[in-house]
Design a protein around this nucleic acid. Sequence first.
DNA 1: TACAAAAAGAGAGCACTGCTCTTGCTTTGG
DNA 2: CCAAAGCAAGAGCAGTGCTCTCTTTTTGTA
Lengths: 236, 236
Amino acid sequence: MSPADDSTPRGARARARIEVTAAIKDEARRQLAVDGAAKLSLRAVARELGMVSSALYRYFPSRDDLLTALIIDAYNSLGESAEAAHRKTAGAAPAQRWVAVCEAVRGWALGNPHEYALIYGSPVPGYSAPEATVPAASRVGLLLIGITREAYQGRGLAKPRLPAELRPEAERMTADLAPDLPPETVTTLVAAWAQLYGLIGFELFGQFKRVVEDRATFFRHAVGQLAHGVGLVHGE
Amino acid sequence: MSPADDSTPRGARARARIEVTAAIKDEARRQLAVDGAAKLSLRAVARELGMVSSALYRYFPSRDDLLTALIIDAYNSLGESAEAAHRKTAGAAPAQRWVAVCEAVRGWALGNPHEYALIYGSPVPGYSAPEATVPAASRVGLLLIGITREAYQGRGLAKPRLPAELRPEAERMTADLAPDLPPETVTTLVAAWAQLYGLIGFELFGQFKRVVEDRATFFRHAVGQLAHGVGLVHGE
DNA sequence: TACAAAAAGAGAGCACTGCTCTTGCTTTGG
DNA sequence: CCAAAGCAAGAGCAGTGCTCTCTTTTTGTA
């Protein structure tokens, strides 16, 4: 995760530290998958690893620091799933790539519900994500921007309307996120990005219970509509 | 909250029980607003109320039961805010009512972030919402259905396209939720419902930090687009 | 190579949590 | 009137995050 400044760890101790750190995170991830973030216990992790709880604080100075490490890993794991779907659809139409990436995000979420809740559910109280999580957290968003850019550079796309009151904000966002795209598109894109997580969250957290049954099909259709809204669909 | 079967409590003891129960919930809500659900402590609540912790278990058999009561209250509080906005816009165009209700939901969420997180964030681990929460949880959804119905009965509305693979599910949802509306509309409506919470959740949980600044304007536009997608906007 | 410094583990302990059980006291209803 | 039910209080259990001290082990360097 951290950049490998010197790929040769200075000694046996440094190597051991890396291994123990990884072991702690692995065991913590295991407990996370079973019981969720709120029940993750440092003492239980240490117990399972055969070490005493106070020794664990040599590796993570607090429970929140462990959680932060897990959050960054989760963002990266999710990002890799999404990027894999993106790669696999190279050459396909932008709308299809969009749907594929969205489905990869959904699939990862369904497969790792507690990790998903950790990063996109309510943040752990009193905990605000440190700056270190930003790059990992951006990966999916960048992917969606990339797909849109590809479509735009390919043949342009239908711009949604933009009310005058939103234009300043739209131009600010555009300058920050994708200066080569029209503000109308960037605005819709950001909304679609948030809406994607609404769809996934409702499914994952049980709001669709007794409402939506064929959730995969429903999701595919909904994110297809999102792609349409962004302007990725030309034909028909 | 609970239906007043006999509005005259049988005696002084019953009255006291109601009052103590309310006091516990109030204090718990106070702590919830400050520290969030995970740090809500029965002992702290009891302490603040001048009672010993074990006495609290006469009123709520467990921490989860207290949380469930708070969840139902939160759903109802949110529902009332939304319904107030709905009433206040009686006679207005459906799209305007839609936006007003969505803004009421957002306003309530921003004003009660921890309560919002309690009901729409990641569910408390190992905790699945009991059936008792269903009616309270449905109020906002019913409102959105009502607005759409009003628009439909008024002058009909533009139906979005519906792919064949989704038609069975769309018809099932329609039969369950609003048999008098076209399946195309119901499907889009359910998606919009989830997407609304995506928009609010991203704002509330910090995902829009350094991305969207003028969030009120952005939100108004985004939910206006949702209304458009459902078919509530006729003109222009 | 000897040695001080840094890193790591072990254990005890503090203040807190949810929850249970027992012991008394008070209100209630037959 | 009096047993029964409801309620409060206190002690106690097992667990938590975290800190502090003490000892051992591994370092980089004089």
